[in-house]
Design a protein around this nucleic acid. Structure first.
Lengths: 190, 190
DNA sequence: CTCATTTCTAACCAGTCGTTTAGAAACAAC
DNA sequence: GTTGTTTCTAAACGACTGGTTAGAAATGAG
């Protein structure tokens, strides 16, 4: 029984996600969020509470973007070949027409983990950590299905987790050629 | 024929380096630099011109810290075993009593390469890029000495450059155990 | 239409950012 | 001791930060 708001939460979060993805958390200001989301600070704060609230919703939005690729890996029967394909699929999501933005979660973990103001960002980092853990379990699952024993599957999963993070970072500063070299050799060794 | 300044440039830069290394460029404010370097803003600006000036001197200071490790690699005759040792040596410099700060150059490249205000930071990024290039040439040199042909040596050097950057990032969020798994498998495949 | 409720605009908050500057303090040459 | 030069302290600069708020505008219920 009152005025209706003229925007959809999911629509404006979609735009915020793109912005955080490109700029990082700290380097995305509220005024930049205002202009990009197309609503002003009052609306942002009344809908999402805080800058961190916007970011948490953006993280969820990002995971949704990623989920088809993750599901494809989960349901695949190709063992480590499926993991290699997963690497390529993820790499494709990092890159748009202009440049590579890397992985939003990997970027954010690198950005926030060094800060000492840990308490404030703990919720964000927990979300990311739990995804990384899920991803690692998927890797182990695929390696076991490929005939690996649990010891070496775990060791190789540790390797692959770090290698996948490397691709996120490298996609921003290296050529596609160099990254393909990296993926090739990464999977030639496991 | 005037007042003498009561600090040594190299001494205060040493402290600034530690600070940038731990916090990153953007997250190190001038007032934090003031208190850590032990001199006030006037002195900082008259000695180093700007925040970026302080950082460029800090980068040089960091390279000096790293140089014995690089020289050790350069003069070694152990081929890829020397590169593996170089990885361990670098990893050791990333970690102090409290935590791992990663590699200052790798951290900085990741932090600044995404910003669109590229012009301002171009000088910093150029310095870093030239070091990465030199490092890659060293890797190629060692692989060639190990009997590799130039094509595969180059491909493997691309792989190693990205792997080494991965260690910098991973050292901040993964256990030493996981990183050792990573280095082991990295060198088992080349 | 009236009225209560919600969303909107736009100004404002205190705090911090990198940088500058006026003036006091210290020093070397005379 | 005076003078000229440099370094120091400390306050201030405008621009920006994340966040708040008063009041106008819009809406649905009676």
């Amino acid at each position: 029984m009152a005025r209706k708001k003229n925007y959809e939460d999911n629509d404006v979060i979609e735009k915020a996600t793109e912005l955080f993805w490109r700029n990082g958390y700290e380097n995305t200001s509220m005024s930049l969020l205002e202009s990009t989301m197309g609503i002003n600070k009052f609306s942002i704060y009344s809908s999402f509470g805080s800058k961190q609230g916007v970011f948490l919703r953006s993280l969820r939005c990002y995971r949704n973007k990623l989920s088809p690729v993750v599901i494809k890996l989960k349901h695949s029967n190709d063992g480590r070949a499926a993991i290699k394909q997963y690497f390529y699929d993820c790499l494709a999501t990092y890159t748009d027409a202009i440049c590579s933005k890397g992985c939003l979660m990997t970027n954010t973990r690198a950005e926030l983990s060094s800060h000492v103001n840990g308490e404030t960002n703990a919720e964000i980092l927990n979300e990311i950590e739990s995804f990384v853990h899920y991803q690692k379990q998927l890797f182990i699952e695929k390696l076991l299905a490929d005939g690996e024993d649990i010891i070496s599957a775990t060791k190789k999963a540790n390797y692959l987790i770090i290698a996948k993070q490397a691709i996120s970072g490298a996609s921003k500063v290296h050529s596609l050629h160099e990254i393909n070299d990296f993926i090739d050799i990464t999977f030639s060794s496991i």
